[in-house]
Design a binder for these strands. Sequence first.
DNA 1: GATGAATGAGGTTTCATTCAT
DNA 2: AATGAATGAAACCTCATTCAT
Lengths: 194, 194, 194, 194
Amino acid sequence: MPTSTPVNEGAPRRLRADAERNRARVLNAARELFAERGAHVSMDEVARLAEVGIGTLYRHFPTKEAMVEAASQQRYGEILTYYRTVCAEVPEPVRALRMLLTRIAEVEVRDRGFASVVVEGTLGSAGPRSDLRADLEAEIVELTDRARASGDIRPEVTGTDVLCLTSGLTAVIQRRAGDWDRYLDIMLLGLSTP
Amino acid sequence: MPTSTPVNEGAPRRLRADAERNRARVLNAARELFAERGAHVSMDEVARLAEVGIGTLYRHFPTKEAMVEAASQQRYGEILTYYRTVCAEVPEPVRALRMLLTRIAEVEVRDRGFASVVVEGTLGSAGPRSDLRADLEAEIVELTDRARASGDIRPEVTGTDVLCLTSGLTAVIQRRAGDWDRYLDIMLLGLSTP
Amino acid sequence: MPTSTPVNEGAPRRLRADAERNRARVLNAARELFAERGAHVSMDEVARLAEVGIGTLYRHFPTKEAMVEAASQQRYGEILTYYRTVCAEVPEPVRALRMLLTRIAEVEVRDRGFASVVVEGTLGSAGPRSDLRADLEAEIVELTDRARASGDIRPEVTGTDVLCLTSGLTAVIQRRAGDWDRYLDIMLLGLSTP
Amino acid sequence: MPTSTPVNEGAPRRLRADAERNRARVLNAARELFAERGAHVSMDEVARLAEVGIGTLYRHFPTKEAMVEAASQQRYGEILTYYRTVCAEVPEPVRALRMLLTRIAEVEVRDRGFASVVVEGTLGSAGPRSDLRADLEAEIVELTDRARASGDIRPEVTGTDVLCLTSGLTAVIQRRAGDWDRYLDIMLLGLSTP
DNA sequence: GATGAATGAGGTTTCATTCAT
DNA sequence: AATGAATGAAACCTCATTCAT
């Protein structure tokens, strides 16, 4: 079972109230802008939308990359929270898996375009995985194990396979958002015992 | 049936021999560089690797985007040629489909990283589709129709569904190259009649 | 004879004990950092090494320049103290001069790189001279006068000449630290009566 | 005898006429601005004075540091040219040495403030020496050897000693320009046989 | 047609200084 | 008095594109 990290959105230290608020504003601005305009959003634009000086932005995140990473973490945190509060209750693993993947898809749809900023860091990709992403992936793997154990999916299907399909799912949303439920149906069919 | 465009890599008019050669050099350089370094390759670098002046490069392609688009076309042309010379002979549509998708995957693996440059224009995505991409997609749709007709895949599966899954396939290669054959297996299983 | 300023490191008024301690911490941090990394040290770094908030730093010194100036003063104070406690006893002016210059060199070696921060304000330079620097220069001039009077150095040598050579001495240490004693030898030879 | 490098101001390749002209304009602008305002001159300002786009400036010199280095080289080239055309004729080594040092001083006076930009790279300093600087230093060393051989300066004086004094000379000019001839007199006295 | 020098808007990042807590 | 978060001007540098040679 994955380590039950408390999902605190990654703020490393205790911050003054206003600092915490600014951090959140920046992260939201970043998510919003990336979501709608893809990768080529400038730091100045993020700062402007967050109504924060550019210096403040850099105080919170030493680098553009760091900021993107943090926004990314935030999204994983959101999904994890959902999973732990809702899916965890569901007894049938395949149903829980479908719920989780659906949630992932919904977040992806909402933040469409965000993914293109972090291709190297998207769910299921290779490359160094951040804390919350690792946790989320661990949950998926575990769910797969349970589903296999209960005989709901084919015995040769591994957790890695499901991560791989998940990765495809988010990409499909980025490219042809409307069709993602068809994708999900077909993939789950491909996994299930006949 | 798809319009049977001759696959001549998109050169619009008769060019002097050396001009044609330069065009090809540029396109290859672009493909190579994008493949290995992803999106942030400059026009100067492309020109340098192509051993061509930057001015020459711009004579052939008015814009960076146009150049990327052309390189993209080249790749689709390559796949189309393969399809028309090899797959078209194969009588069983599902086998032909698997062959085609495998070829697509192989090209994708070879040019790994290229996709990240043209997210907006990859196979199966929404957005304006170029000539050769449209042709290729049409072939996939047609193959799907034949497979459905022959009862090899489920009756409710549409050509669009397969395009959608194909789009996921290329994305998976970009993100976790090693697993693409598992993806293909599961996907085809999901499509097939039980 | 130079005005006998008490060498109290320039703290203008009675400060609370902890304030005084903070002032000293900042000054030491500044000296240390400038010494080892030259000019491009930020105020934040100074504050961090001093274990003091940046605000506190600015309470003590209204400006970076002011802080540098104060650190500079501190160094002159150190040399003056040495001079007044040790050299002043020495009866032969040339020997006293050599001792003083040696001390200056030693401090310069210890704080190598510091000089590059205060080029405009180094010993013997033009530009507005601070209190303690003025005092130190006055001592050098006076020592020169005594040496000339006692016939140890050439009659046409002025105090200004020696200041000028001293200025060269500190520069040489900054640029080729190892050779400063050769410089001193040759310089004193050039001053002395044949 | 130092290798007789032709003094071509360091332009590495054949350039188009206009490029060569721009290169020179930039270098002159840089020298002028650094001379009058010291180190904190921005690249934009240099470009503006040179009446050249900022991009052009960076095409010629990939880095601010590289540009400073090139301007520095130019100055050494200037001095070397003088040395080779004028001093080399003079039979008495000490007189030639004084002429050379005087020239160095004059250039330093003209470009006052320039030195502060390149402390790490000034004549006689430690650190990686550029081609022309190395050549110039070699000339100084050779001159010293000849002067020692002819008995004009003390037998224990080395070329290194003279480099060291030269380094002091340029620093003195930076700090108290007016007095440099006194410095030169005294130092040469210190070197000479009694 | 080909070349590569020139352009300059715009990107990321730093840092001295101010001010709310 | 002390703190450290916030500020934003300005620095350096990149790169798609234009144009003189």
